[in-house]
Amino acid sequence: MLDIHSQVPWRPRAGARTTGAKLALKPVYVWGIRIRLQVALRARDLALFDLALDSKLRGCDLVALKVSDLVSASGVRSRVMILQRKTGRPVQFEVTEQTRRSVAGWIERKGLGPGDWLFPSRKKQGAHLSTRQYARLVDRWITLIDLDPSAYGTHSMRRTKVSLLYKKTGNLRACQLLLGHTKLESTVRYLGVEVDDALELSEALEL
C-alpha cells in the first residue's frame, strides 16, 4: 500500500533562505496525487498534472498549450518544443508514456480538435484555463495527500523533475536546458544549490 507519510517532509537546513521558494514534490507524493486523480476519474486534472511535471513549463506557458502543440497525426508526441513567453526562447521537453496516455484520454473525452486549447476554460468560452485557476488546482492536488499547500505551488510542478535530476546527477547544465534558463546562475538560484551541495558531490568522487 502506498504510504505518502513514510517520508518526513523536507525541511531547509538552518539559515537557508526559503522566502518565496516552493518545494519540489517527492516521488511518493507524485504517485499519491496521481492515484487519487485516477480513482476520481478527473481526466483533465490528471492530464494537467502529468504534463506539468514532464514539461517543466511556467504556468503561463502550460495553460496556453494547444492540442496541435502536442499532437501529430500519429498521436501525442514523445518530444515537444515550445517557445517560452518570458524569454522568447524555445525549450524542449519529453512526454512520458504515462503523460501521453492521460493527455490522449483527456483529448478524447473532451472531443478536442487540433486548434483547440488543450485546457479550455470552463468559465470563459474560447479562453484557456487561467494561471490563477491552475494555481488553485495545484493547491487542491496538494491537499489530496494532506500536505500543506502553502509550502507548494505551480513552481513545485516546474522544479520537481529537475530537482530529482540534479540530486541524482549533479548536472546543472542539463537542468538549465530543461528549465529553459538563459543563464546557469538562474538555474543555481532556482534549484537552491549551495556550497554544501557542491561539496557533497565532490566528496562522492573517487580519484
Rank of each mutant, 00 (worst) to 15 (best):
Leu2Ser: 12
Pro12Lys: 08
Arg13Thr: 15
Ala16Asp: 12
Arg17Gln: 11
Thr19Lys: 06
Thr19Pro: 04
Lys22Leu: 04
Lys22Tyr: 05
Tyr29Cys: 05
Ile35Ser: 11
Gln38Val: 14
Asp45Gln: 09
Asp45Met: 03
Leu48Ser: 11
Leu51Asn: 10
Leu53Gly: 05
Leu57Ile: 10
Ser68Ala: 13
Val71Gln: 03
Ala73Tyr: 08
Gly75Trp: 03
Arg77Asn: 14
Ser78Ala: 12
Ser78Asn: 12
Arg79Ile: 09
Val80Phe: 00
Ile82Lys: 01
Gln84Thr: 15
Gln84Ser: 13
Lys86Pro: 04
Arg89Gln: 13
Gln92Ser: 15
Gln92Thr: 15
Phe93Tyr: 06
Glu97Ser: 15
Arg100Cys: 07
Ser102Met: 00
Ala104Glu: 09
Trp106Gly: 07
Ile107Gln: 04
Glu108Ile: 09
Arg109Ile: 11
Leu112Ile: 13
Leu112His: 09
Gly113Leu: 02
Pro114Ile: 10
Leu118Met: 09
Leu118Ala: 05
Phe119Pro: 00
Pro120Cys: 04
Ser121Lys: 05
Arg122Lys: 14
Arg122Phe: 08
Arg122Asn: 14
Ala135Asn: 07
Val138Leu: 01
Arg140Ser: 15
Asp146Met: 01
Met157Cys: 11
Lys161Trp: 05
Ser163Ala: 12
Leu165Val: 14
Tyr166Leu: 02
Leu172Met: 09
Leu172Gly: 11
Gly180Cys: 04
Ser186Arg: 01
Ser186Asp: 10
Ser186Pro: 02
Val188Cys: 00
Tyr190His: 08
Val193Pro: 01
Glu194Phe: 03
Asp196Glu: 13
Leu199Cys: 11
Ser202Pro: 05
Leu205Lys: 11
